[in-house]
């Protein structure tokens, strides 16, 4: 049950929970509603998923905004998307780091493919009126079909289609919902003729348990987020995806209308500077060096001269 928020990224039915919360209306006496009454500067609530990488980005947003004089209320480690999205929609959270493709799919499950730009513009359309997305970053953290280096070497694997070279039965492992995702085992069969022999659930969203199962060869194919430091640390290969089986997942701040022009500029500057390599190396600092998100965020902001 302790699964990463990120792992539950594509919350197809977030709308269901949203409706429920909407029905409950004001009854849900939210503890975060009125905390900005006394302070001079605007108080902005920054949220994060229950995912360390997302928390680092949220912390970067928070520190940069604080540096500009905003008062920040951090509501980090909020569970999965189905938990926090309704709260963002209600206006309880003002800034939230999101992923373009996954958020789009949560809002509109019918979308299954597209380039970064297409996904971004569709996302702008799909968002409810009271929310907006600012500029997306280059950094992305998306789903991938991942194998071990040894397995890739053995069958000469480079992209997803090359999985059809494999002659032994492939057991796929991952969060149980992977089985029914549009890019799941069925898609491999239909699009690439790759036969999947079995599915083993490992519910840690491509975390250490999944990686261990892959390295132990209990499973041969799994879904790991491309920004995960576990890929490099364990000699894993994220198979290339030339056909866009997975939606691009660029990091993007989702904001409420309380975020003014100055704050918007600050967040856009961050997105402009946040590269794909930066995200992977910050994730690695969190996992390998066990640094806190505060430390990592401060270091990155200083390095990019964003705390001036």
């Amino acid at each position: 049950m302790f699964t990463a928020g990120k792992g539950r990224r594509v919350a197809i039915g977030a709308v269901v929970v949203g409706a429920v919360i909407a029905l409950s209306g004001c009854a849900s006496g939210d503890p975060l509603a009125d905390e900005n009454s006394s302070s001079d500067g605007e108080t902005l609530v920054v949220g994060s998923q229950q995912y360390y990488s997302n928390e680092i980005v949220a912390e970067i947003y928070s520190q940069a905004l604080e540096n500009a004089g905003y008062t920040i209320d951090r509501q980090f480690q909020i569970g999965a998307r189905e938990v926090y999205l309704p709260e963002v929609e209600e206006g309880n959270i003002d800034v939230f780091p999101e992923y373009t493709g996954s958020l789009l799919q949560a809002l509109d499950p019918s979308v299954t493919s597209g380039t970064s730009d297409e996904v971004y513009s569709q996302l702008v359309e799909a968002l409810p009126e009271e929310l907006s997305v600012l500029d997306p970053a280059e950094a992305s953290d998306q789903n991938s079909w991942t194998v071990t280096q040894a397995f890739a070497d053995q069958y000469d694997l480079t992209d997803i289609a090359s999985l059809s070279n494999v002659t032994e039965p492939i057991t796929v492992g991952g969060n149980s919902e992977l089985q029914t995702r549009p890019y799941g085992p069925d898609a491999l069969q239909e699009l690439y003729g790759v036969t999947v022999a079995g599915f083993t659930a490992v519910e840690d969203s491509g975390g250490p348990l999944t990686v261990k199962a892959l390295v132990d060869n209990t499973i041969q194919l799994t879904n790991i987020y491309t920004a995960s430091p576990l890929i490099e640390a364990n000699d894993l290969i994220a198979l290339e995806d030339p056909d866009g089986l997975f939606l691009p997942d660029n990091i993007v701040p989702v904001v409420s209308d309380k975020v003014d022009a100055d704050a918007t500029d600050i967040l856009n500057e961050i997105s402009a500077a946040l590269s794909a390599e930066d995200l992977v190396s910050m994730n690695a600092e969190s996992v390998d060096e066990q640094k806190s998100s505060e430390e990592i965020a401060t270091a990155w902001l200083t390095e990019n001269d964003l705390l001036g």
């Binding site: 977030a14 149980s176 919902e177 659930a201 209990t218």
Partner: peptide, 18 residues
Amino acid sequence: YVGAGGLGRYIFSGQATN
């Protein structure tokens, strides 16, 4: 949670996909 199956599958899977 660690791939041993059982009825928990329905709970995890159901939660993940709402």
